[in-house]
Amino acid sequence: MTAYLLLLLSTALVNNVVLVKFLGLCPFMGVAKSMDSALGMGLATTFVITLACAATWMLEHWLLLPFDLAYLRILSFILVIAATVQFVEMVVKKSAPTLYQALGIYLPLITTNCAVLGVALLTAQESMGFAQTLVYGFGSALGFTLVMLMFAGLRERLALARVPAAFAGAPVSFILASLLALAFMGFAGLNF
């Protein structure tokens, strides 16, 4: 149990998917402009990453490894993740319209997000067990949501600040992102 808790903590903070591994930067810069959209995107990504990790684990261990096809990993992972997300979108639209209203616009956006594919590939590379894969995926997604929310909150404050004209808009956001990444480097000192 402790091992899983530590894994969760280390994926969410120490090996944060956005600020340490630099995956999923497009939603990080693009969507994290307001807390609402950041939270929606974060929840949708959490959902998709966890699901994608489970689906790709099955694919890896039941098809790719037995038939010695590990070189088809990226191709088949993209295929399975995209199909899974499409399927989930249909089911959610039918069974939970309110959830669809909240997550619906973000689901197609993250079908082929690099964070989703990256986390799935990492778990496959490190040949983790099923439960471990799930925790790893969920932890990474939690870290993603946390960073999205932090960044959105900071940018909402930043929108009110007086910024030199040359830095207004995207440049100051990039500086802010780099400062956040520096802050997250501090977690690298945590040794479990």
Partner: peptide
């Protein structure tokens, strides 16, 4: 041959599944 076969089968099955799901979970 195994690679071609497995990807073809995988793609067809997923496509078929999505097609059936699109009919089954259609929202009017």
């Amino acid at each position: 041959l195994m690679a071609i076969l497995s990807l073809t089968v995988l793609g067809s099955l997923l496509g078929l599944g999505l097609g059936i799901a699109a009919r089954k979970f259609k929202v009017e």
